[in-house]
């Protein structure tokens, strides 16, 4: 194929995944956490598409489309939660939302 080999794309995918993980673990604003989660999902999507191209098999793209649908659903629910938090005038800070503490 033209251009860089599959391994370059995989490197980007791994980096995106790591950056997304870092965002999820470090940031305190739930919106940013959701966005970081999206980054992670996109990273794995990229890996899927890359492997699909390498094997010449369309299955990876199907999987990536399913992931996209699921990501969309999860964003809907997550944003619904954040809106509810906002309505209840709670702090939008994941560290403060700890009433499930043991």
């Amino acid at each position: 194929m033209l251009g860089p080999g599959v391994s370059w794309y995989l490197g980007i995918a791994a980096f995106l995944f790591g950056i997304g993980a870092l965002g999820v673990l470090l940031r305190r604003n739930p919106l940013i956490v959701l966005l970081s989660l999206e980054i992670m999902l996109n990273g794995s999507n990229l890996a899927l598409i890359a492997f699909s191209r390498q094997h010449g098999n369309g299955d990876g793209q199907i999987f990536a489309l399913a992931v996209m649908a699921v990501a969309a659903s999860e964003v809907v629910v997550g944003l619904g939660l954040i809106v509810s938090l906002n309505r209840k005038r709670l702090a939008l800070d994941v560290d403060k939302l700890s009433t499930l503490r043991g």
């Binding site: 994941v94 939302l97 503490r101």
Partner: peptide
């Protein structure tokens, strides 16, 4: 064991990672 239940999402996510 109780001390593991911090209630913070980030801790649980860290555990996952």
């Amino acid at each position: 064991v109780r001390r593991l239940q911090t209630g913070l999402i980030r801790t649980y996510a860290l555990a996952l990672a």
